[in-house]
Design a binder for these strands. Structure first.
Lengths: 204, 204
DNA sequence: TGGGGTATCTTGACAGTGTCAACATGGAGA
DNA sequence: TCTCCATGTTGACACTGTCAAGATACCCCA
């Protein structure tokens, strides 16, 4: 009776639904995701997910939160394997950013789409997960940009610039196997990242 | 009998459906778009659109093509009002890019999403529209970048860099009324655009 | 000028979707 | 032990895209 007999309670249905949703999304794109298909994959009835997610948008938000976790992991992994110097670290973070976009294209693009969850109420737990995991990802990029200055401007503009650049590159040119833009081969990201100046440590 | 009596033939249903679709999209986001709602708005039965579009994805593609037309117009309008110098022209093109993203956020983001039309067959007319209009938009940005060099690299990397930068900025920070990023106020785009060098006209 | 062909639109049907309500089950705490 | 409630099931509803079959009116050619 340990494994073979199906209990009335699934045990960890929430996790199973998120996992199933990620699989569906990576295979068939965002439109392939449905509550009923996730339920079927998890071996429960079509209405069971309603007890764990406040509707489809909440499941989508939970999938996105899981995406952010993998996203952070990809950037951290790249940074760990690189030299500790600020420029090497920033390059590595961007490489991890782009790696994730290439290897999880569907989820990546879905993460940065306009979602209906703007005015909608998500479950408390999903909302917390989403806030925490997305901020963690952003903080990684932010920290990597912190040592640098850009364009004679102070403060925040460096990370906005780097984020815009790497994000645009990822959105436009990172599909699996894509190597051509409308006007020729796509250069490496390191070729388009402008040279940045290190901040001066001491101010008068 | 000129206007009041409804003919069996609508007259220009294809256009009416695209217009209705654009309205639905701008009001309620991509998920608010449905063939049946467009048909209702155009005053025809639910299956009428099938005679003009090869399914939903073709209507979406036609809406995107229309979006590219407005997109091009926005960039051209900005360029026409600016000085003719290369730097002023490039700044204006980027401003037009961002203006469109801000004023037509839903359609803009939808234009650059992964779509199911990759392996799917669109109507010939819709496919032509989409190719023509998207290439026209890209050509505008391309021309504006042509006079410049970047990062000691030759050839294509300038337009890839500028495109990535402006696109990432638009995707991340251009929602109606959005002025804050996770780490503070969002700077103007001109503040994050690196200084570019003009190409030397003559080569040995 | 007439007649046939065809583009256009309608009606009806079907499977799939999200969501709600009502009910069943079983574990955990009083 | 008894009861409450989290968790899961069944059934229903409106809405969706898509297909098939039939109706209508326009256009072109004899």
């Amino acid at each position: 009776m340990t494994e073979q007999k199906r209990h009335h309670h699934h045990g960890n249905l929430r996790e199973a639904l998120i996992t199933a949703g990620l699989e569906l999304m990576e295979q068939g794109g965002p439109d392939a995701l449905s509550l009923r298909k996730c339920a079927k994959r998890a071996g429960v009835s079509h209405a069971a997910p309603a007890h764990h997610f406040n509707g489809l948008v909440s499941l989508q938000a939970a999938i996105i939160a899981r995406g952010y976790q993998k996203f952070s992991a990809s950037m951290r992994r790249a940074a760990d394997q690189a030299d500790a110097a600020p420029q090497a670290q920033l390059n590595a973070i961007c490489a991890g950013y782009i790696d994730f976009a290439r290897s999880h294209t569907a989820v990546f693009k879905f993460m940065f789409q306009p979602h209906n969850n703007d005015s909608q109420t998500l479950d408390a737990t999903t909302q917390e997960e989403l806030d925490r995991d997305s901020m963690a990802s952003y903080q990684i990029l932010r920290d990597a940009c912190a040592p640098f200055e850009h364009n004679d401007a102070q403060g925040v503009s460096t990370e906005i610039m780097v984020w815009s650049l790497v994000h645009g590159y990822a959105m436009l040119f990172c599909a699996p196997g894509k190597t051509e833009s409308p006007s020729g081969p796509i250069p490496e990201f390191s070729q388009i990242l402008p040279k940045l100046k290190l901040k001066t440590n001491i101010t008068p």
